[in-house]
């Protein structure tokens, strides 16, 4: 974290008591609008959410039920299924995005002349909305009429969208497609921090390109790589839009992740208490990742 080295030096204190105290409290006045909005739109709802997680609506009345919501959740197979789906989704998404992102970043790091063009093309999937992206992907896999489904048909012999494993694969592929450019940009920026001479001298000493990457480049950009991994995992755990647009959790809950589970409980079935309890579980996962993220950032600078 780079905090300014020193506060701003104000040479002439204003004359008059009122003016002076105004000048001293200026930073707070400037911060006030942002803080007020954050309190109302972010902080208060977060606490409200915690409160809701311990409430349950029965016969139209909400009452405190302690850990009842969590009990229901932990007992239901649905939660564990969603957890497992989230884990599968996150792991595959993370590994594939990182591997491809590194591949692309390494290629682009060779100072290719067309880099700006490649970056723009790579980034178009990233600027699309989840709903638009999801719609595109769903169509490409519709039975008989979907272009990728038809292409893959001889290979897989089934309709991928209707198949539990296939549907998950489509959701993962589309998520990788959306995030790849972002990961590539972060990794490319990291790679460009590594002095060229370091890699070249290792190569002169007889290291293969693979060795240079594993033993020279990677250790130097460790922190940035970790930050990228964390940003991607937070994104993965919270993702809902794409799944909603492509599979709507199906077939038979095969792509029902934690985020989708929460969406469904709260908005399809109107169970806000249960929804809030799921939100708490996701929140906990995020907090853990966030702490690691901030630690990494602080260790890096």
């Amino acid at each position: 974290m780079k905090i300014a080295d020193r506060p701003l030096a104000v040479p002439q204190p204003a004359r008059g008591r009122l003016a002076r105290s105004l000048q001293r409290s200026l930073p707070l006045w400037l911060l006030l609008p942002a803080l007020l909005i954050l309190l109302v739109i972010q902080v208060y709802p977060s606490f409200y959410s915690i409160y809701l997680a311990f409430q349950r609506r029965q016969a139209g009345v909400e009452s405190f039920v302690g850990l009842r919501n969590f009990e229901i959740l932990l007992r239901s197979a649905d939660l564990w299924e969603s957890m497992r789906n989230t884990l599968v989704y996150t792991c595959f998404y993370l590994v594939i995005t990182m591997v491809l992102g590194f591949g692309l970043a390494l290629l682009l790091n060779r100072r290719v002349r067309l880099t700006p063009l490649y970056m723009v093309l790579l980034f178009i999937p990233w600027v699309l909305s989840d709903v638009v992206a999801g719609t595109i992907w769903r169509w490409m896999f519709i039975r008989d009429y979907g272009i990728l489904q038809e292409l893959l048909q001889p290979l897989v012999q089934r309709t991928l969208l209707a198949d539990p494993v296939g549907a998950m694969a489509i959701v993962i592929a589309s998520s990788v497609w959306r995030s790849l450019a972002f990961a590539t940009l972060l990794l490319l920026a990291a790679l460009q921090l590594v002095p060229r001479e370091v890699q070249e001298s290792a190569a002169i000493d007889g290291a293969t390109p693979g060795q240079v990457f594993w033993h020279v480049t990677l250790p130097l950009i460790q922190a940035q790589v970790l930050v990228t991994v964390l940003l991607l995992s937070i994104r993965a755990i919270n993702s809902v839009g794409l799944i909603l647009a492509i599979t709507a959790g199906g077939p038979v809950r095969a792509t029902n992740t934690l985020g989708f589970f929460l969406y469904q409980e709260a908005w399809k079935f109107g169970d806000f208490g249960l929804g809030a309890a799921i939100a708490m579980i996701m929140f906990a996962l995020n907090i853990i990742l966030t702490i690691v993220y901030l630690r990494t950032l602080r260790a890096e600078v």
Partner: peptide
């Protein structure tokens, strides 16, 4: 710089990590 300014900045960054879904019900 004032008392707690650094903590405040970190807290605001922390907000960035709250999943949007969590706050939707409230």
């Amino acid at each position: 710089r004032f008392r707690g300014s650094r903590a405040l900045l970190l807290a605001i960054l922390g907000i960035m990590m709250i999943p949007g879904l969590t706050n939707l019900i409230p």
